[in-house]
């Protein structure tokens, strides 16, 4: 006797077809929703440096403060927390290039469309690049470290790195400069919960409204100044009774 008869098949088919489908109200209607559902971003941990050594941190803080010097419009890169932002990013998935294909070959002369060609993860880039920069400064400035240089000398070094005029031993200075510049801007304008943009100083500088998403009242009043203060994922100081 066959294991699976025609009768079985017909009965099974009938069962599937005829079994009353009794959807629950929840399944049939309404948007998916569950209580307490939230996906809050992971903020930067406060405290000491997590990746940088003390010397590396001092160098990065000096660099970000030359890239964004303090003036009447905003605090400098250091006080804005840009070095902290970079340190915390390097400890996370960005620091290990978790999102990037990291096997060779790496082109020495890539087309622009070929993207990042460094065999180093950002963690390695900072470690190797800062070590090469420290060696360069020691040799050129009588044993001084980058943070010990006068601001004008710091600017000369940074300009030389940017233009490719300065050749570090063992690391591409242009790549080092462009990485720090990009990460500094990210730190200055990213949400404050990631460690930079302290007190939303970057947003106040450029007039970015932050995490607001409804502008109907504003759009209804053209040519009037926008007066709402910026708002971060964490809120803003006015949320607390004792603010100001």
């Amino acid at each position: 006797m066959p294991f699976f008869t025609r009768r079985h098949l017909l009965a099974a088919t009938a069962l599937v077809t005829l079994t009353p489908h009794v959807p629950t109200a929840q399944a049939a209607l309404g948007m998916p929703w569950s209580p307490n559902e939230a996906y809050p971003p992971t903020g930067a941990r406060p405290g000491p440096w997590l990746y940088f050594t003390a010397d590396e941190a001092a160098t990065v803080e000096a660099i970000v403060d030359r890239l964004i010097p303090a003036d009447e419009l905003s605090p400098g890169g250091r006080d804005a927390g840009c070095a902290v932002f970079i340190d915390r990013q390097l400890t996370g998935p960005f620091g290990s290039h978790e999102w990037l294909y990291m096997q060779g070959p790496f082109s020495a002369n890539p087309l622009p469309s070929q993207g990042i060609q460094s065999p180093y993860t950002p963690r390695q880039q900072y470690r190797l690049g800062l070590a090469a920069l420290a060696e360069y400064c020691r040799g050129q400035f009588g044993g001084k470290t980058f943070p010990q240089l006068a601001p004008a000398d710091q600017d000369r070094v940074l300009t030389g790195l940017e233009k490719g005029d300065i050749h570090l031993s063992g690391y591409n200075g242009v790549e080092l400069f462009s990485a720090i510049l990009a990460n500094t801007m990210e730190g200055f304008f990213a949400d404050p919960i990631y460690g930079g943009n302290k007190d939303m100083c970057g947003w106040k500088l450029v007039g970015f409204p932050g995490t607001r998403y409804d502008y109907r009242d504003v759009i209804a009043n053209p040519n009037r100044p926008y007066t709402l203060p910026p708002i971060s994922i964490q809120g803003r100081p006015d949320w607390n009774r004792n603010a100001g």
């Binding site: 309404g30 948007m31 929703w33 939230a38 994922i233 809120g235 949320w239």
Partner: peptide, 24 residues
């Protein structure tokens, strides 16, 4: 915790308010 409104045949959307406890 947030909340979801009733979803009925005549008003099947059941709009929901997100939880804000994580932020406040």
């Amino acid at each position: 915790s947030g909340a979801q409104s009733a979803a009925t045949d005549l008003a099947p959307t059941g709009p929901a308010m997100p939880a804000l406890g994580w932020r406040l």
